[in-house]
């Protein structure tokens, strides 16, 4: 049972990096690359920091960098939470 859901990620991404009307929500595009969704490295750093605070999890920089899609980031977070 995942602790962080795709809706949580959507909410945090919007709060940290904003949203454009034109872009699809990550809920619909969990497998698309962050680049294609318009999220740059700063946006992901801000998002990772927010997830760390909210879910009390530590996300190593290189593993965050390796997460290229919302689904991969979600898997990373939930994997970490499961082993914590």
């Amino acid at each position: 049972m995942p602790i962080m859901t795709i809706d949580d990620l959507q909410r945090i991404l919007v709060s940290c990096a904003g949203e454009d009307d034109a872009t699809a929500t990550v809920t619909d595009s969990a497998g698309r690359r962050f680049d294609d969704l318009g999220y740059d490295s700063l946006a992901l750093m801000e998002t990772a920091a927010r997830i760390e605070q909210e879910f009390g999890v530590k996300l190593p920089d290189d593993e965050v960098n390796d997460a290229r899609t919302p689904q991969e980031l979600l898997d990373l977070v939930n994997g970490r939470l499961a082993t914590a």
Binding site: S15, A17, G18, D20, G38, A43
Partner: peptide
């Protein structure tokens, strides 16, 4: 302002 610029 584009949505992506608002948080920054």
């Amino acid at each position: 302002i584009p949505g992506r610029l608002l948080p920054q």
